[in-house]
Design a protein around this nucleic acid. Structure first.
Lengths: 252, 252
DNA sequence: GTGTTTATCGTCAAGCAGACGACTATGATC
DNA sequence: GATCATAGTCGTCTGCTTGACGATAAACAC
């Protein structure tokens, strides 16, 4: 099969972002309102076209910065400051997923600590953090009683895949610390697990597990009472990125 | 940002396949020899352009069938007959990964039982099963003393990612059975784990683990002596696709 | 002070994994 | 046919991890 430029059809390639954070004990995702057809006025995942000279991860990092101001982190470096974790999720290329043309979307997953309200081109009403269950329920009613339209395109599927990736990955990695600020307490980390998994964990067993895993948490020496109650030790994420044996998600 | 068709550059989209199998106690991958530039004469992963009306998974299944004659399996259905397991691996889109043009490749991972020698357009010399360490070593010498050229494009990276995916996924899923024929013995399944992980496992503990996990293996009633020694029970893969608690890979 | 909240340490029993002994049922070899 | 080599299968024991849960500690609110 010789090289024949007419032998392949042209595609548009985009990146879509599943940006997750934990707000008020709930796992939330960033959604933006579409300003033009198709799906005008509907909520969608942030994303955009990959530029001609851009790598996929560069495009994802650029979109993330444009939407949230977050800098993406080199995955090889442990999570520090307020950089977000960013990784490729999966690629979606159904021929009919975009009615305009053939679009292949390389979805990425970003995990970020709780952030100020998002901006989308400076317009706050066109971007928001929404609980993932609210975004994923099809045709129900949101917390404010307003009817909820499903996400545009196949973004509900992409979001569901991203949430599932996050849920399973915090089992065996230190990724949950990406949802926390630089310094955090064991209790704050536990509340992240509880929000992402939607379960309640035993504070004593959780404390034993995370403090007993070498290299997972590094004490900073400080303490805080920002959660109330007895002062809690502050930690930073340690160098260990793999949790072995994994944190066990309680069976449903 | 209004819809502007000139706002995005056209891409070529391909699928590349990491097809793994276990032959003679070694994890092997399917490689094809390139017939045209660039990288003419070098080994590469099989793959090809996605057609205009084709989904990504369809394109991957088509390429797999063209190269091996294998039918891909619906992932929702437990592995049966000689269908191969096929799943999306990751997408590679470095602007310079193909010197001819901008190509985004959606790599897929296929796991197959040991197969007869492959064919590439009917020409056996242009397709082969090669041990993955042989394909991944850069500029060394193969088992026959012949110098080994690295794989074309970024295929060494893709292969390495696919191998790592397979290695980690058999820990917590029943995916290792995809390397086995329909009916297999506990020892044969153990040799799959040993080949994929490159370690030796205790036959007694392995037997206890896999036969003690409900729904993982279903006895067919038959026995075989094809491995020599005492006759062994034959099993089929059970409905359980998740292995909990996981099979522990011995630490390096 | 009393109560509430959160953090942290300890105890105990059940389950699982790793190490390894013992026995079984074939084919191969003498 | 006896012996050996090979592979499969069943048990035992020990140590580690988990899940359930009691107890104590250190802050704040009243």
């Amino acid at each position: 099969m010789p090289y024949d430029p007419s032998a392949f059809p042209p595609f548009a390639v985009t990146v879509d972002l599943v940006v997750l954070t934990v707000r008020r004990h709930a796992l939330c995702a960033l959604a933006v309102r579409r300003g033009e057809p198709p799906f005008q006025g509907r909520w969608a995942l942030p994303g955009g076209f990959v530029r001609a000279d851009e790598d996929l991860s560069q495009a994802a990092a650029r979109e993330l910065a444009e939407e949230t101001g977050l800098r993406a982190h080199d995955p090889a470096v442990p999570v520090q400051d307020n950089g977000a974790h960013l990784e490729q999720l999966a690629t979606y290329g159904d021929p009919k997923r975009d009615p305009r043309m053939r679009v292949v979307s390389v979805a990425h997953l970003a995990l970020a600590p709780d952030l100020p309200a998002p901006r989308a081109g400076g317009d706050a009403s066109n971007a928001r953090w929404a609980p993932v269950e609210e975004l994923l329920q099809q045709g129900g009613y949101g917390r404010d009683g307003e009817p909820v339209a499903p996400l545009a395109f196949d973004h509900a599927q992409i979001l569901a895949d991203g949430v599932e990736r996050a849920r399973s990955k915090i089992e065996y990695s230190s990724l949950a610390t990406a949802f926390c600020p630089t310094e955090f307490t064991v209790g704050e980390l536990r509340r992240v697990y509880e929000a992402v998994w939607g379960v309640a964990l035993d504070p004593r067993n959780f404390h034993r597990k995370v403090t007993g895993t070498p290299g997972f948490l590094v004490p900073t020496g400080g303490t805080t009472t920002r959660q109330g109650g007895r002062p809690a030790q502050l930690f930073r994420a340690g160098g260990a990125t793999l949790l072995n044996p994994p944190m066990l998600r309680p069976e449903v």
